[in-house]
């Protein structure tokens, strides 16, 4: 207690002696969440900063970490938005409700494809989900080389760099690839969802952390390795890496938009309705994010590798933004 008082006194002392910015009624938007959405959110934040608002502060915490911070409570101490590379889970909505966070607005900003890439100077590959599951699953055949899965694949060792469990990309990969692959080998009923998604632990699959740039560098140095990350990283580094075709479909803006490319998923961000009009600029930020300038056919987010929504879903999202339609009533 005494220590607490001393520390508090110290804090007050510093607050009094050094000039400080506003903290009571926060006037800067705070955003947390997915590292995949982060590059897009920062661009929009800068645009808002040009319009007489403070530039929102954005922390890249991963989708799961962002949800935890977002759902911790209402008020200036907690973030206003969280970015997500998957939809909010039911358990997370419940966590939010438990902490008094209700009135969550969901905004879909576009699509993203998950690239399975290798060095641009190596041969291009085509994989099926089943082959990918066999290569990566702990409860699968655990082959040493790709040719052991299918003789048409080359005789090189399997080496895959995958995102960590906190990542939304990993969640999407699990539900789009691991689950589907597990089903197609007929093991899904035996193993269940959780066991199907476990990566093998003998070194063939390596969790490389949230740093996608690092994965790109490793792929550029190692012609045999493969990496898993969002389409924008592939798009920005095409001189070093190439995306494999999945089930015969090449990864591109068009195939992701039409969901022909089998590992495509929508990207989201979530807003607290109760914070809108309390923290200045929130409505404007949302409007900017879904504006033609940003996510239209020639919007600036397209230059950064975001895949636009089809115009029908976009207008639906815009209605949701202007009416602040909440997902939890």
């Amino acid at each position: 207690m005494n220590l607490k008082r001393k520390m508090f006194g110290l804090a007050v002392l510093f607050a009094a002696t050094v000039p400080y910015g506003a903290v009571q009624a926060r006037d800067t938007i705070q955003i947390v969440g997915s590292s995949t959405v982060y590059p897009f959110a920062t661009v929009v934040a800068e645009q808002l900063g040009k319009k007489n608002f403070n530039t929102p502060v954005i922390e890249s915490t991963g989708t799961g970490g962002g949800m935890k911070l977002f759902c911790a409570g209402l008020g200036v101490k907690y973030p206003d938005f969280t970015n997500a590379s998957r939809a909010i889970k039911k358990s997370e909505v419940e966590l939010c409700a438990k902490n008094g966070v209700t009135g969550i607005v969901e905004i879909i900003i576009g699509n993203d494809g998950i690239a399975f890439s290798n060095n641009a100077n190596s041969a291009p590959f085509n994989f099926t989900k089943e082959q990918l599951w066999k290569a990566m699953a702990e409860h699968g055949p655990k082959p040493k080389t790709w040719s052991q899965i299918d003789p048409s694949l080359p005789d090189v060792a399997i080496k895959i760099m995958a995102p960590p469990p906190t990542s939304g990309t990993r969640d999407a990969w699990n539900s789009l690839v691991m689950k589907a692959g597990c089903k197609s080998v007929g093991k899904y009923d035996d193993l269940g969802k959780k066991k199907c998604a476990v990566f093998r632990e003998d070194g063939a699959v390596e969790e490389a952390g949230e740093n996608d740039t690092l994965i790109v560098k490793r792929l550029a140095a190692d012609p045999e390795a493969f990496g898993i990350f969002g389409f924008s990283f592939l798009d920005q580094n095409r001189d070093q890496i190439q995306g494999s075709t999945i089930e015969g479909v090449e990864i591109s803006l068009d195939t992701i938009q039409s969901y022909e490319y089998p590992i495509a998923r929508p990207l989201f961000f979530y807003a607290k309705k109760a914070h809108v009009n309390v923290v200045p600029g929130m409505q404007e930020y949302m409007d900017e994010f879904v504006s033609d300038n940003a996510v239209g056919e020639y919007g600036y987010l397209m230059d950064r590798g975001l895949v636009p929504l089809e115009s029908k879903s976009l207008s639906e999202v815009r209605t949701n933004v202007s009416s602040l339609k909440t997902i939890d009533g």
Partner: peptide, 17 residues
């Protein structure tokens, strides 16, 4: 302690992110 956010504006005091 969360000091790795994207902060475009120059902080004006020790209580700004």
């Amino acid at each position: 302690i969360g000091m790795f956010a994207f902060v475009a504006d120059t902080p004006s005091g020790i209580l700004d992110q």
